[in-house]
Design a protein around this nucleic acid. Structure first.
Length: 895
RNA sequence: GCCCGGGUGGCGAAAUGGCAAACGCGCUCGACUUAAAAUCGAGUCCUCGUAAGGGGUUGCGGGUUCGAGUCCCGCUCUGGGCACCA
């Protein structure tokens, strides 16, 4: 009894989506209290965005995943904390100021306003009352408080050191921000420069950061492994080598292979090493100075990158091997890193690949002291090595250690030297302290001042916050704060800035560097638990909500943000703000949204990028782009590789177009359906139409049936009490709920959840079903889809009378969809009475037989063998083996 | 070089060791329409065959198993991370 098409309300997302968004907003539907039992609470968080202008596809994917989880958990009866904010300090704001004169603050907050409206238009269920931006005084000022707490705890120090200097940004970068020797933002070269820096002592937590990675079962292994590699613990020994002809002078090396000590034939040392001043003889001074100058000229990448040439220079000095008294030459080497280990390395060409190459190049002796066990131990070294032997073996030519295996000899040799006071067992870390000084305006000021005579002094908490001046000029060179006429020298009271000393007030100048923006993202998840607190953090609420139950974001943050955040949380504990030492219990790393890039070489080799809609592409039959032309001038552009969508490379697709055309629900459904969350998603929106059709079909079906179903109670009985299509659909309903629930609980495979819902939808044929079963089917679909496509589901739930049907798994009952809850299923309702067993022989299905599910064991075996179709397959051959897997399959092995 | 992923139709992808290709896109045919769009129905891995039906197929080569896309060994291609780190 379908109604005439003209009377059916068409599916109009532009009408129903704003309607529900307004209702959620007006009823503060997604706010949450902080005082409910923790086991009933759930904290789900997506990495907050940098307000770059507008949402991109990666955001839409990230937040659609998070919102589906948040809404699902609410339907399961949890009190869900699902907040959103803005990582709003950062370089692009300043670039905008330089390029088009927009003030960073205005540019940033305009972007936030627009992006907030986009998030609301997507219908994401955030607790908006907790929203903040990192550049808000309420956040940045409290971060300054925390900074002073860290200072007091000894976790911040000032150090002059070689830093990564971005020639593009005129600022310092952390190691993590240097990619292939280039700036991670601009791609411009990074050089080494000596500069005073504020450093945060992340290395203090190196061991804990490492150990705890073995106790984070909710994190993907790939991320944990990356963090372990980054922390880079290596155990070995420091060994002192006296310098020949300089009594009292020694050079200390760090090695992980003390077992090879008797094979040392030279020592290599970093060109920057301070001891060189004292020990290089006059005869070699000029050569050494020339070498050092040459090394200093090139960038770290050119000096030590994968294609860098190994270069060395003999220092003229010799050192004495403490194990055997050998006098070996000291070489400067460009590949020795000054700030790892001790900046000097004992070189064993026979047992180290790099030393071997260096020895070959400079004609230095190779002395073998470890013999490959596999080649037989005859107590003599092989005549000549053609490559370094770096495996475990047996020691030779090593005095009293001859015959020991190299793994046990490590500690034996270390102890022997330690007893003489010339070596110590040591652990060295790859992880360095985090330099946070940035020569930039749009960041959080570092709350220090420099007294004229007394040097760096932290501000007192009552003198905080340090606020940025608004009247600054941007010309793209250096730090605008430094060039401001008065800011650095004026106190909060407007008077000249001073520090107190025993001798009275002393004129002072503010630190003009600002903090690395990774500082802000290192504790925002904690601030969301108590965004209204007067203190930086309210310990009770932080401990109530942390650790975040599920944190969702891009895999590209595996070592940057995710390591800093773990460190910061530990530091916050140690200054008293929390007792939860790990911030994120479970981590879901969504794959990147990728797309081809289009470019042309521009001035100075810097490419000029094109947006996808500025080019016309030609595809091969597989859909791969083979060539492209600019629409503007009809000339070819270079089709680059498929990579992460990013504004700088312009390979972005604006999600707003999708929303405007199909609505937020379709956009959400599509990004969830296109691939499982952790897989990279090469953008192609050909499939969007399928998701839109599905929603439209569901909509139309409900509109057509709602009057017929108005007074009908959904079927709530067992499958066996109905027949035919009804019975099949009841089973399907339970099976679908099971699949959807498993996906939500186990692996967030929304793509298969959606597929399961489509299958159920395809079976809901009104003319074949009784009204109660049809209503149960529609109710179930609406509830299962609600976390992913909330607007249409709320609307349809109303159309269906808001009734409940299958009992809610948990949570209160009522007419509201969220309160109605997630449907539960009954495993026994899924199974049919008979099982269709495929009968397999030699890997091929030869027959299909139907037998009662109740049959098991020997009775089932007998029934299989007696079945006429099986008898026919067997023929007159003997049955060597019969495997019957109950409920699954039959396999015959014939003679 | 080392450490992680991944390789399944024309495409996005499914598949607790148990009937490979569910679901969707695209495509073909049909219905509705003056027509188009929208919508609905049927078909769509390859191959032999008019058909019924047969054979083959998850990057390559081996192995374990009654049974392998799935587990093990070796290779290969590919994406990502780390890297003269002593």
């Amino acid at each position: 009894m379908n109604l005439p098409a003209t009377e059916i309300r068409p599916y109009d997302p532009a009408a129903i989506e704003p309607k529900w968004q307004a209702r959620w907003n007006d009823t503060r539907a997604h706010e949450v209290r902080d005082d409910l039992p923790r086991e009933q609470c759930y904290y789900v968080l997506e990495m907050f965005p940098y307000p770059s202008g507008k949402l991109h596809m990666g955001h839409v994917r990230n937040y659609s995943i998070g919102d589906a989880v948040a809404r699902y958990k609410r339907m399961r009866g949890f009190h869900v904390l699902h907040p959103m904010g803005w990582d709003s300090f950062g370089l692009p704001a300043e670039q905008a100021a330089i390029e088009r004169g927009a003030h960073p603050k205005k540019w940033t907050y305009d972007n936030i306003a627009y992006m907030r409206s986009q998030l609301k238009r997507m219908g994401f269920s955030y607790a908006w009352s907790r929203e903040f931006a990192c550049s808000d005084p309420g956040y940045s000022a409290r971060e300054q408080d925390i900074f002073l707490d860290l200072v007091e705890k000894g976790l911040v120090y000032r150090k002059s050191s070689m830093v990564n200097w971005s020639t593009g940004l005129n600022t310092v970068l952390a190691n993590e921000q240097v990619i292939d020797g280039k700036c991670w933002r601009t791609g411009m070269p990074v050089i080494q420069k000596e500069l005073p820096q504020w450093c945060v002592r992340i290395t203090h937590y190196a061991q804990e950061l490492l150990t705890a990675t073995y106790d984070l079962p909710g994190w993907p292994d790939a991320v944990l492994v990356q963090q372990r590699n980054w922390i880079g613990k290596s155990e070995g020994a420091e060994i002192d080598f006296p310098v020949d002809g300089h009594p009292g002078e020694k050079l200390t090396v760090f090695t992980t292979r003390p077992d090879t000590l008797f094979g040392v034939t030279f020592m290599s040392i970093a060109p920057e090493h301070a001891a060189l001043e004292r020990i290089v003889p006059a005869s070699h001074r000029a050569a050494v100075d020339a070498f050092r100058a040459e090394v200093k000229k090139v960038t770290t990448h050119d000096r030590m990158g994968e294609n860098a040439e190994k270069k060395g220079c003999f220092s003229g000095a010799h050192v004495i091997n403490p194990a055997n008294g050998d006098k070996v030459p000291l070489w400067l080497a460009n590949f020795v890193v000054a700030d790892y280990g001790t900046g000097a390395v004992m070189a064993v060409p026979a047992h180290d690949t790099r030393d071997f190459e260096f020895a070959r190049a400079y004609g230095i002796a190779v002395k073998q002291v470890i013999i490959d066990d596999a080649k037989g131990v005859d107590g003599k070294p092989q005549s000549a090595l053609d490559e370094a032997f770096i495996e475990v073996g047996t020691l030779v030519a090593s005095s009293q250690f001859d015959g020991q295996r190299s793994d046990s000899a490590k500690s034996a040799i270390t102890q022997w030297l330690a007893a003489r006071g010339v070596a110590r067992a040591t652990t060295t870390w790859r992880l360095r302290d985090w330099g946070i000084s940035r020569q930039r305006y749009w960041g959080n000021p570092i709350p220090f001042v420099y007294g004229e005579r007394s040097g760096a002094v932290p501000l007192r908490k009552q003198d905080l916050p340090v606020t940025l001046p608004d009247d600054v000029a941007f010309d793209g060179v250096g730090n605008p704060l430094e060039k401001h006429p008065s800011w650095a020298t004026t106190g909060n009271d407007g008077k000249p800035l001073t520090v107190r000393t025993a001798q009275g007030p002393e004129a002072a100048r503010r630190e003009t560097d600002t903090m690395d923006t990774f500082m802000e993202s290192s504790w925002y998840f904690a601030r969301f638990t108590c965004a209204d607190a007067a203190k930086p953090l309210d310990r009770a609420r932080v401990d109530h909500w942390l650790p975040v139950d599920l944190y969702i974001g891009g895999i590209e943050h595996a070592v940057l943000h995710l390591l800093y955040a773990r460190f910061f949380q530990k530091a916050l504990c140690d200054v008293g703000y929390s007792s939860r030492r790990e911030p994120f219990k479970r981590l879901l790393c969504q794959g990147m949204v990728t797309m081809e890039t289009y470019s042309r070489p521009g001035e100075g080799g810097k490419p000029v990028w094109f947006y996808p809609d500025e080019v016309e592409v030609e595809k091969d039959p597989k859909g791969k782009v083979v060539s492209a032309k600019s629409k503007a001038d009809r000339r070819d552009v270079v089709v680059g590789r498929v990579e992460k969508m990013s504004k700088s490379k312009r390979n972005t697709v604006d999600p707003q177009l999708l929303i405007d055309r199909y609505g937020a629900d379709t956009a959400r459904l599509f990004v969830l359906f296109a691939a499982p969350p952790e897989r990279d998603l090469e953008w192609n929106e050909d499939g969007v139409i399928g998701q839109h059709r599905f929603l439209k079909r569901l909509w139309t079906l409900v509109q057509e049936q709602k009057q017929r179903l108005a007074a009908v109670a959904p079927y709530a009985g067992a499958a066996k009490d109905v027949a035919g299509a009804d019975q099949a659909v009841v089973r399907k309903i339970h099976a679908t709920i099971k699949r959807a629930t498993d996906a939500m609980e186990k692996d967030f495979s929304f793509n298969t959840t959606i597929a399961a819902c489509m299958e159920l939808s395809n079976e809901l044929k009104p003319e074949a079903l009784s009204p109660p079963v049809l209503k149960q089917g529609l109710n179930t679909l609406v509830r299962l889809l609600a976390p992913m496509v909330p607007h249409i589901c709320h609307e349809l739930w109303e159309d269906l009378g808001g009734s409940i049907g299958i009992s809610a798994a948990s949570g209160p009952s009522g007419g509201d969809l969220t309160a109605a809850g997630w449907p539960s299923y009954d495993e026994t309702q899924i199974q049919t009475d008979d099982v269709d067993y495929p009968v397999q022989m030699q890997g091929k299905v030869r027959a299909r037989i139907s037998l009662p599910r109740a049959l098991t064991g020997p009775a089932l075996d007998a029934a299989v063998l007696a079945h006429p179709d099986v008898v026919a397959v067997i023929g007159d051959r003997p049955v060597r083996k019969l495997i019957v897997v109950h409920g699954k399959i039959v396999n015959l092995v014939l003679g």
